[in-house]
Design a protein around this nucleic acid. Sequence first.
DNA 1: CTGAAAGCGCTAACAA
DNA 2: TTGTTAGCGCTTTCAG
Lengths: 338, 338
Amino acid sequence: MTITMAELAKKCGFSKATVSRALADDPRVKPETKTYIKGMAKKYNYEPHVVASNLARRRTKTIGLMFPKAPRTIADPFFLEYLHGVSETLFEHGYSLLIPQVKQARVTDTIGQITTHNRVDGIILTEPKIEDERITLLQEREVPFVFLGSTVCENVSWVDGDNISGAYEAVRALVKLGHEEIAIITGEEGLVSTRNRFAGYEKAMEDFNLPINPDWIWEGDFTREGGFRAVRQQLEEHGSIQVTAIFASNDLMAIGVIQALKEAGYEIPQDISVIGFDGIEVGQYLSPPLTTVQQPIYQLGQQVSQVLVEQIENGGEPVQIKLPVQVVNATNTIGRPS
Amino acid sequence: MTITMAELAKKCGFSKATVSRALADDPRVKPETKTYIKGMAKKYNYEPHVVASNLARRRTKTIGLMFPKAPRTIADPFFLEYLHGVSETLFEHGYSLLIPQVKQARVTDTIGQITTHNRVDGIILTEPKIEDERITLLQEREVPFVFLGSTVCENVSWVDGDNISGAYEAVRALVKLGHEEIAIITGEEGLVSTRNRFAGYEKAMEDFNLPINPDWIWEGDFTREGGFRAVRQQLEEHGSIQVTAIFASNDLMAIGVIQALKEAGYEIPQDISVIGFDGIEVGQYLSPPLTTVQQPIYQLGQQVSQVLVEQIENGGEPVQIKLPVQVVNATNTIGRPS
DNA sequence: CTGAAAGCGCTAACAA
DNA sequence: TTGTTAGCGCTTTCAG
């Protein structure tokens, strides 16, 4: 149907080589012949065969995209917006996506599956752990990779929202309203983001001269159920909530928190203030809309892809990019302490 | 690094052809040599080179995945869950995904971009329109494709939730509670799903001997804002809501509806009942959780992928699959009319 | 500036 | 049951 380069070359009266160069804008071809060839290509509806080209150039033009393990991914709208940033950017650069199963037993297996068979040119990962075995694995295999989320390890590329100062600002917003007893619900254990958001909270409390009561550190896991459970547990243990404000390490948990609080008869923000982290669209669906730390989610997806493509195509040193975040809807689910 | 088939063949003392067959489990190779070759392959860590294989077999092993145009996609959590069904199934079959930009000017352009360059083996589309120009376009290009959503056109493959009876059941649930004045907020104009959900509504009203007041048909577009706007408009026109129940053609609109109603001082479901369609996870985040018609979203993604893979690999007649749906949370955002 | 030729790594007729 | 021989369609030395 669609003609091949060899045929086009014949029609042009040039060799395959010249046609190939002309189409690739190689400076070595004479401008006239270049325009001529391009004209002919258009005329005959020539379409390069990507797979053949990829074989010749020893590349796949596909990227492996890893998500957090189920059921996290599938429930967190964060990843829809993120995916769009990623897929659109990669599409612009001609890359496809290989998305492995999220219900994999061990992550390292998945990485094996993906890097093996020469299936991808690079990998985008999420949620670096404090000790992340994936890093050495990937470095050994010499596959370019970038993390969504900052790593502890140096010389690794990553793109991240500013977790520390985001959490700091969240606490500051609460303090400005007069809160002094502020609980944090932590994220999934072992993740760098969990640690950083906690660090921001801790730093802010310290800066504002508010001692942290160990009872205010509630364990969560970034799921809505986790947020819900944390509140229920407090209620069971103490019969009531012992703080005037809660900083949830992500929006999904904040949503769970609010549900649990409402069920227990608390009014938000009259009785208790709640602030989240992420800025997922869904937060706006609540009444009132969730006060949160807005991350540039779509842009995170764009940047992380951009960095990886750059890394694949031009190599170079690892890059770290931290994007700014900010508190939004500052007067919705947070208010003056009662 | 990783050895090639030619090298493996040499080590085995067989030809490339035999090795290729053995690895592909071709019945023509003697069982012993097959196990021998497989053993050697494992021993030498042989990894097939997918791109080369694809070139030889004239295929790409990638699928184009089309989403509704922005900002629909990016905001509707439906598509996250759906994507998971799709990507996991395709991964199992060894396919990658090409996801074009959703902010494309014209859909047909996107299809052009995708099918062109021999980049995909098939395409998954969403939301067939009543008159869908993509169908003829794809048929001309002879690219296998499957729709998420039933088409009007025969001999096209699709997978869909049962929209008509889903809408029917939604209305029935309301009628059972005693409602007689039931408004519908329609979906995006021109879509088959919009029409079918309306048809289910109409049919149910008729079956239950409830005349439909034209004033009860509110135009929507499947976005939350659309649902919100529809309610606001009613309030502006009539000063109050003229019905006792509202069937929103999807959950996102139902969420918008509830927001607008709450803002206007209505209590759900005491003053007005609201039921949605889709069963997105987010609906459960509301208090009370949204009453809705649950679609098997993840399975829709699985099935549509399965059908496409089948079509690509074995050809055959177009297939139509309709999955059952059901009303869930039946006593949350709907109740007896006041 | 252009062309010839040798692959990229695998598959598939066609023979044997 | 196995091997030989051509490719798949494009890129890229190496000559000229």
